[in-house]
Structure formats: C-alpha cells, structure tokens
Design a protein around this nucleic acid. Structure first.
Lengths: 174, 174
DNA sequence: GAAAGAAATTTCAAGCTTAAAATTGTTTTG
DNA sequence: CAAAACAATTTTAAGCTTGAAATTTCTTTC
C-alpha cells in the first residue's frame, strides 16, 4: 500500500477511447493514482510524526486530538471527538487518559447526563498545542513549498472531486 | 490530522499578489491542502482495511507485504522489503512470522551469508494474494469511479509534483 | 588471524488502533 | 413503575508500529 508508487504501467486516461472493451475493466490507472496519493500522504505523515516526537516528545494522535479541542473552547463530548477524528471510541478513551494525566486536558461528567464526558484543553494544554501547531504549520509549508501556487489550487480542486467520489461510493455501498 | 478537512479559511493561492508581507508566512492554504489530502487517504485506507478484514480476514500490512513479494518470484531480502514498504525492520519481522505460520510465505537463510533472510510467496500465498488483489482493484476502482478520466490524469500529474516537493524538502532537511 | 567495525535481523518496551463485549446511565413503553 | 431499548463510554484481546538496544554474522584491518 505504501512504497515507491511504481506499478510501471502506462496511465490509460491518455487513451481513453481505445480498449474500452477489455474483459473486466482495467483498474490499473486508478491503482496507480491511489498508490501515488498514498505515497504522498505517508511521506508527510511520517515526517510529522518524527518531528512531533523529536521536538515535543509527542505523537500525531495527541496532536490531532488537541487540534479538535482547540476550536471548542467549551470542550467537546467524547463521542463527537471520536467522530471528527474518524477513530474508534475506545481509542479516544486511551488518548484522553494520557493527556489528562499530563495536564493537557480536563474532563468533566455532564451533570444532566452522567454518561457524557466533556473534555477540554487546559490553559497549559492550549499553550503547548499552540507551540506545536505553529511548528506543524512550518513543516507542512516546507514540505509543500516546491508546489507552484497554481498547482496548489488545482490540487485542492481535484482532491475535492476525489473526496466527493469516495464519499459517494461509500454511501452507495453502505 | 484526520477529520473533516475544514479549516474554514479562504485559500490564498487565489490572491497571491496581496498580503505577501504578512509577518511570518501564512501557511493556511498548505494546511488546508494537507488536510484534504489526508482525508482522502484516510477514507480509502479505512475502507480497504475494513474489506480486507471482512472478506479475507486479513490486514493491510499483510496485503502490502505480499504485494511486494508478488513481483519478486525469487523472493526478496527482508531489508529490501522493509525499505520498499517504508516501515521499520522490526515490523517486517513480526509480519513475516505470522504469514509464514499461516503458510503464505516461505523463508530461507542465504547459505553464503547467514545474516540474510529471503522470503517469498508460497504457491498457496500467491493464490490467496491474487484473489485479494483482484478485489482490492475493484474497491479502489469503485471509490475513484466518480472522477472524470481527465481529472484522474490531472491528479496524477499534480501529485507527482507534490511528491517531488516533499522528497526535495526531506532531502534538504536531512 | 584476532579484534574492531559494519550489516542484517530480532527483541523489547511503549504506544496506537480496532471491533466486539461489557458497563453504566437514560429513556421509552407496556 | 418495571422492563426493554437505547446511548455513551470503557474494557478487552489482538494486531500494528516504532526507535533503540541486543544478537548474530560477516568483513576489514592491524
């Protein structure tokens, strides 16, 4: 799934008119595209993880969790965090435990519904997050710096289309 | 890092001529692009993991490992697999153990250098992999089906540029 | 040819992740 | 109002992942 993104096959969007009748549809172009997307994503993600660890002794999941909370000054319900981060609820439990121990997060049980946990950044947690977020933005900026302004815009648009395609396909399959 | 891809800020490639003097460079457009890329990647990856588990009781790392071996009929050295998959050597050790137990892989010590382990798909492993690979290609094809042929081509090109940017940045930083 | 150095792998400790089962608490229904 | 249904979260078991330390096996150098 990761790797060097080569499936050494000619892309076939270039000759869309030929060989449409091939037995089952030839999926190689899509596969190639997917591998390339994954390669980019993996490279960036690894680098971000590495730097979070080296510069802040932290991890990407923790950073992500704090990023969600940063924009919710009044805190957020666990389930909501889980949905936004697209990870399992059990996962959030563990992350919140650690971040609460380390003083980054506060957690409260909602008085009117004692099933509900609300978590929020502490002032300390917010300060730490802001330091990390600033560096994080620099890292991403550096990694993307070789992209011409126009390419950035095109990529945004194309990825929006891809996202729509993915979401539509997932909805249909569900 | 994951999530709904919204940082609700106007992209600033659209007005590149204005506000160039802003104190530290404004990184929001790059961040937005990165989040969108990550969202696409996460959605596809989760779906692939889910289906590998449901249809084959397997995992993505195992699939990836077998995919590397499929194209090396004479097998491959562990270290080479590790590099190609961009994961740590220790990780490969564990995966190979399981896949060898289950009969998908064979492993041999190189007679001329007993440090070196060579792994290869067994005929059984190859058969299993081919079934998975066919389905995998279908899934990706479905997920990307909403993309016009032209968009696929553009995306390939833009991602190639992005990858060059990332690799260049990583090389410079190293 | 022994000792030092380098290379390929494995082991280890710690953390992330998930799905499924279990808990705890609230709401709806007969 | 008790029982059933539902909801939010935690626990559990299993697997993935990493960096660093340890092993084993060559290779090079004095």
């Amino acid at each position: 799934m990761t790797g060097d993104d080569t499936f050494d096959i000619a892309p076939d969007w270039l000759d869309g008119e030929t060989k449409v009748l091939e037995a089952p549809h030839d999926h190689r172009a899509e596969l190639r595209l997917w591998l390339r997307l994954l390669t980019c994503s993996t490279l960036v993600e690894s680098e971000v993880r590495r730097r979070l660890r080296e510069e802040f002794d932290s991890t990407l999941p923790r950073f992500d969790l704090m990023a969600q909370l940063e924009r919710a000054p009044d805190g957020m319900v666990l389930g909501e965090v889980s949905k936004r981060m697209m990870v399992s609820p059990g996962n959030i439990t563990v992350l919140v435990e650690r971040l609460t121990e380390s003083g980054h997060l506060s957690r409260t049980t909602l008085p009117t519904d004692r099933r509900v946990q609300i978590i929020a950044l502490t002032p300390f947690g917010r300060g730490e997050f802001e330091k990390m977020a600033a560096r994080h933005a620099d890292w991403i900026s550096d990694l993307f710096a070789g992209l011409a302004p126009n390419d950035g815009g095109v990529l945004m648009d194309e990825l929006a289309k891809l996202k729509r395609s993915i979401v539509a396909s997932l909805a249909k399959g569900a």
